[in-house]
């Protein structure tokens, strides 16, 4: 087995990195007394006391806004490089690829339109498919 000094050095630095990261954690685990009880297990350090648990149903309105953002914003975002590249002629194949990309994103917009997202109701009701 060939084992050069370079490989030894890499191994040593790797070990050093692991010790540097894990050493303080293990050290505090072994050397420090442990306080517990009271607010130690609380998620937050200030503010009003939390009540209820987090496994509840959330409204997904903002999820729709995020998806609309994706549909329009990503559209524009990825068309900027295309616009920059189209200064020089690219050929028909590239145009076809671009149209496929636009069609996929347009499908998302059509989907939201069918779901009634663009009527901006106070609460979006997503009814399951009949």
């Amino acid at each position: 087995m060939v084992f050069t000094w370079l490989q030894a050095a890499i191994l040593l630095f790797f070990l050093g990195g692991i010790l540097f990261a894990a050493g303080p954690l293990v050290g505090s685990l072994l050397l420090a007394p442990k306080a517990h009880g009271g607010a130690m297990g609380e998620s937050y350090e200030c503010g009003v006391p939390t009540h209820g648990n987090s496994w509840i149903k959330f409204g997904i309105n903002y999820y729709f806004y995020a998806l609309i953002f994706l549909a329009f914003e990503v559209d524009i975002l990825y068309l900027f490089p295309v616009a920059a590249a189209y200064a020089s002629p690219q050929g028909l194949a590239t145009t076809f690829k671009l149209l496929v990309f636009l069609a996929v994103l347009a499908a998302a917009v059509v989907y939201f339109m069918r779901k009634g997202v663009f009527t901006w109701p106070r609460k979006i009701q997503v009814s399951p498919r009949p």
Binding site: L29, L30, L31, A32, P33, K34, A35, H36, G37, G38
Partner: peptide
């Protein structure tokens, strides 16, 4: 009043703890 329960360290030898 505050809950103040503290378990001793795993390595609680006085020599070690003095240094720490």
């Amino acid at each position: 009043p505050a809950v103040n329960t503290v378990d001793p360290a795993l390595i609680a030898q006085p020599a070690v703890q003095k240094l720490v």
